[in-house]
C-alpha cells in the first residue's frame, strides 16, 4: 500500500520550496494532501485515505491520509481549531451525532471500512474507546461507571465476572487502591484527576483495541497529568493510543509518533523525536519553536 502512495514523494519538493513566512503565505494548495514525514505504516490498525470532513459547507479536514500502527502511541498536535478533535472523532464515528457533519474518504479499521453504512457502530465503538477532554463520569457509583460498558455489551455472565472486570479496569487505570473501599460512592465525587482515570477505566472495561484521548489532561493539574501520562505509557503495551494534546512536552513524553495539524491539513507526521528535534516542514518548525521558545 505504501508503494502506491504519492505523498511521500512530496518531501523533497516541500523542502526545496522557498521558505514561506510561517503561517501566512502558505495556501491550501501547498498543503493539501502533501503530508511530509512518515505518515504510513505496514499492516496498520487504521488506514485513512483522503479523509475530508465537512461541517455544513465548511471543510474542517482537508484530504488527510494517515496510517496508525498497531500498539503505537500517536499524538496529534496543532493550534486549536485546526481539526484535531474532528479527525479523532472520525475514528469511532462520534461525529455521527452532529447533524451537519459529513465524512468523506476511505477510513478502515483492520481493513474494514469504518463508514460502511452496514457497519455496526456499537461494535466499532466497543473496539475504539474514547476519553474526553473534560472528565465525564456518569452520575452513578464508581462501580456502575466502570460496569456500564460491560453491561451494555453483555460481557459478564455473572456478578463475579463483572466484579473482576471492574477491578481489572480500575487497576489498569491506576485507581483501584484509591477507590476499592468506596466503589458504591458517586463517581462525580472524585477529584478531577481521579475522575479522568475513572473514565479511562470505563473505556478499557470493554477491552477496546484502540483508545482515543482528546486532550485528556487539559482540565487537570500537573500532578494528575503526570499520573495520566504514566498510565498512557502502561496502556501502550496493550492498546493503540491516539492522543490529542495541546502540550508539546506531553506529546514528546508519551508518543511514538507525532502528527502536526494546521488549518485542517496534516502537515507533518514523524517519529516524535524527529518532529521535535528536526522538523521538516517550516510550519511545524515555527509551531514548535514558537511554543518552546
Amino acid at each position: 500500500m505504501n508503494t502506491m502512495n504519492p505523498v511521500i514523494d512530496q518531501d523533497a519538493k516541500v523542502e526545496k520550496a522557498p521558505e514561506p513566512p510561517a503561517g501566512n503565505g502558505i495556501n491550501d494548495a501547498d498543503l493539501e494532501g502533501r503530508t511530509v514525514g512518515r505518515p504510513f505504516a505496514d499492516a496498520p490498525k487504521f488506514s485513512l485515505r483522503d479523509v475530508e470532513v465537512f461541517y455544513g459547507e465548511t471543510r474542517a479536514i482537508k484530504r488527510i491520509s494517515l496510517d496508525i500502527a498497531r500498539n503505537e502511541v500517536i499524538a496529534f498536535i496543532g493550534p486549536s481549531g485546526c481539526g484535531k478533535s474532528t479527525f479523532l472523532r472520525c475514528l469511532n464515528r462520534m461525529n455521527d451525532s452532529i447533524d451537519i457533519c459529513r465524512v468523506k474518504g476511505q477510513l478502515q479499521l483492520d481493513g474494514h471500512d469504518i463508514y460502511d453504512p452496514k457497519r455496526d457502530v456499537v461494535e466499532l465503538r466497543a473496539r475504539v474507546g474514547m476519553v474526553f477532554q473534560k472528565p465525564n463520569p456518569f452520575p452513578k457509583s464508581i462501580y456502575d461507571n466502570v460496569a456500564y460498558g460491560p453491561r451494555i455489551h453483555g460481557l459478564a455472565n455473572r456478578k463475579s465476572d463483572l466484579d473482576d472486570i471492574v477491578e481489572r479496569s480500575l487497576r489498569g487505570a491506576g485507581l483501584w487502591n484509591e477507590v476499592k473501599d468506596r466503589l458504591d460512592t458517586p463517581g462525580t465525587g472524585l477529584s478531577g484527576g481521579q475522575q479522568q482515570r475513572l473514565c479511562i477505566a470505563r473505556a478499557i472495561a470493554v477491552s477496546p483495541e484502540v483508545v482515543l484521548m482528546d486532550e485528556p489532561c487539559s482540565a487537570l493539574d500537573p500532578i494528575a497529568t503526570a499520573r495520566i501520562e504514566e498510565l498512557i505509557a502502561e496502556l501502550s503495551e496493550s492498546y493503540t493510543i491516539i492522543i490529542v494534546t495541546h502540550s508539546m512536552q506531553q506529546a514528546a513524553r508519551v508518543s511514538d509518533r507525532t502528527a502536526y495539524f494546521h488549518l485542517g491539513h496534516l502537515v507533518e507526521v514523524n517519529e516524535t523525536n524527529k518532529v521535535f528535534t528536526t522538523p521538516q516542514h517550516p510550519l511545524t518548525e515555527s509551531y514548535i519553536t514558537g511554543r518552546f521558545g
Binding site: N92, M94, S97, V121, V122, E123, L124, R125, A126, G129, M130, F132, K134, N136, P137, F138, P139, K140, Y148, G149, I152, H153, C199, R202, A203, V206
Partner: peptide
C-alpha cells in the same frame, strides 16, 4: 444534562435508547 454525558455513553458503544434510559434519564 451535559452533552458530555451523552458522548461518554455513546463512545462506549451504547445505543441512543440505552444512553437515554441508562444515563440521561436517571441523571
Amino acid at each position: 444534562v451535559p452533552q458530555t454525558m451523552r458522548d461518554g455513553s455513546l463512545a462506549l458503544g451504547a445505543t441512543q435508547a440505552e444512553t437515554m434510559t441508562k444515563v440521561i434519564f436517571p441523571a
